[in-house]
Every structure is written in C-alpha cells, then in structure tokens.
C-alpha cells in the first residue's frame, strides 16, 4: 500500500545506477571487510603457530587432543549422549508446565489463594538460590533413601525431579517478567469487554507474555541441556560420565574434549537462534 504511493523514480533509481553515496558506502564496506579478514587471519595464525611452541604443548596435545584416544572413545560418547537427549526431552516439557504453574501461583490476587502465592514466592526463592548439583544430590539420594521400592527409587525419576524443581523456578520468573511486561492497558481493554480475570490471563495476557519470553526461555533450556550432565552424579552414565570413565581407563583427557564438541554442536546453533529471536524482538519493539 505504502510502496504504491512512492514516486516512481525513488524505487527505480536504486536498481538502475548506484548513487554517489552508495558507491562510497560499498567501498567503505569492502575496506572494513578486508581489514577484519586480515586481523582475524593474523590472530588465528598466531595461535596455530605460537601455541605449539610452548614447552608443554606436546604433553597437552597428547593428553587433550589425542587422535588415537579420540577415535576409540568418540562413538561411545555419542551413544552416551543419547541419554542426555532423552533426559532433556522428558524434562523440558515438565519444566515448561511447572514453570507456568508456579508463575501463575505468584500472580494470583485473590486473598483466598494467598497461600498459593506464598508458595510460589518461596519456591522460586529457594530453588533459584541452590546450586543444581546440590538439589540433585539431596533429592537423588535423599528421597530414595526413604525406602521406596524399585522402580520408584530410580535416579532418573528423582534426578529429573531435581532438574524440574530448579529450572521451573527460573522459567517461572521469566514467565512472570513476561506477564509484567504486558501493558496494563491490555488488561483494561479485556476488562472493559466484560472478560473475567481468568479469561483475561488465559486469552490476552499469557499468549503475549509467553511469546515475549521465548528467547529468554530458550537460553534457559540451553543451560538445561548442559546441566543434564549433572545427573551423572547420582548414577546415570550420560556423556559426561562416559567421558570420565574413558578418561580413567586411558589416563587421558581427550574424551572430555570429545564430549565438549558434542555439546557445542548442539548448543551453538541453539544459542545463535535464541540471539536471532531476541534481536528480532528488540527490532520489533523500537
């Protein structure tokens, strides 16, 4: 619509011949690209040539970048990583649902529901205040120690619960910040139409709030993917533990580097995507 109202010349000229300004800017761009390339190349070259000159390099290489050990252990690491993926796959939805429920608890206004609100506050304060690994230890060994029969004492169940408890506290806070970010005028508009508070939350506030916090939550889930490894403390042999076993058998740290590579292949694209979403949202807001 708006394009149609532009004078023909305005859009036509850019296609036909570049203006003086465009020629100048293209030149500036080319020059900065060249400089960036040269400086990056020098840094990379410096690392590649200087680091191996360090006296301990050979020993480090043998311990951390050992091709023989890598080849022998990498398939096993990949196999163990499937367990990480599985734990993540069942934890993530539980965390999302619990986080939402806790966020709603904290947002209740009815006086009768005050205990719920108090619970929400205590929950987020406590579980955001504890290191994940402590919660995993305490719940993962503590609850089964009460004498639950198998399979209900499985470290998978209680380790997952520990992850859910900690991460849902963070997700709840993120969702709550999303709820707070929805302008009061949206609630007013909904109220003026006679919508109940419940419907206002469900149809007007939450859909917008959750959309706003998708990037922030993605960062949390990337962190979760890494913290799944902490479940190994209570028994499950996921990739980090498997790498530890190989490390011990080969007296070599290369399996850790292999595990790190596996994590990076997954987390870097996810991080880039979250950043992209975040930037897109920031642009839309301005």
């Amino acid at each position: 619509m708006d394009d149609a109202s532009l004078p023909d010349g305005a859009s036509g000229r850019t296609v036909a011949a570049p203006t003086r300004r465009e020629v100048y800017e293209a030149e500036v761009r080319r020059r900065s690209n060249r400089i960036a390339l040269i400086s990056t190349a020098s840094v990379v070259l410096a690392i590649v040539f200087l680091v191996p000159l360090a006296p301990g390099w050979e020993a480090v290489q043998r311990s951390f970048f050992n091709g023989r050990v890598f080849a022998a252990t990498f398939p096993g690491l990949l196999n163990a990583f499937l367990l990480n993926v599985m734990i993540f796959a069942w934890s993530a939805p539980l965390i999302a649902v619990t986080g939402l429920a806790i966020a709603l608890c904290r947002d209740t206004r009815a006086p009768a529901l005050f205990p719920l609100r108090l619970f929400g506050i205590a929950y987020t304060d406590i579980f955001r205040g504890l290191p994940v690994v402590l919660v995993i230890y305490i719940i993962g060994f503590g609850v089964p120690g009460l004498g639950l029969p198998r399979p209900w004492n499985s470290p998978y169940i209680w380790g997952t619960l520990a992850l859910v408890l900690v991460y849902s506290a963070y997700v709840a806070e993120v969702i709550r910040s999303g709820i707070d970010s929805i302008h009061q005028s949206q609630r007013s508009a909904a109220a003026s139409l006679g919508l109940s508070e419940r419907d206002t939350m469900r149809f007007v506030v939450l859909p917008q709030a959750i959309r706003n916090v998708v990037p922030a939550n993605m960062n949390l889930f990337i962190a979760l993917q890494k913290d799944v490894a902490l479940l190994s403390f209570i028994g499950p042999v996921e990739v980090f533990r498997q790498a530890g076993v190989y490390k011990s058998l080969y007296a070599n740290f290369t399996p850790y580097v292999g595990a790190a590579l596996i994590f990076l292949v997954l987390t870097i694209p996810a991080t880039r995507y979250a950043d992209y979403l975040m930037n897109k949202q920031n642009r839309a807001r301005t």
Partner: peptide, 19 residues
C-alpha cells in the same frame, strides 16, 4: 462484569490484542 457488558469503552490507544 455485567455492567461492563452494557457500557462499552473505546480507548485513545486502541488497545487491540496484538496476537
């Protein structure tokens, strides 16, 4: 709520639900 159903209001800033 019943009152608001009988008295509608339109705001300066539209306040449509953007989603």
């Amino acid at each position: 709520q019943p009152v608001r159903q009988q008295i509608g209001i339109v705001f300066q800033s539209y306040n449509l639900f953007p989603h």
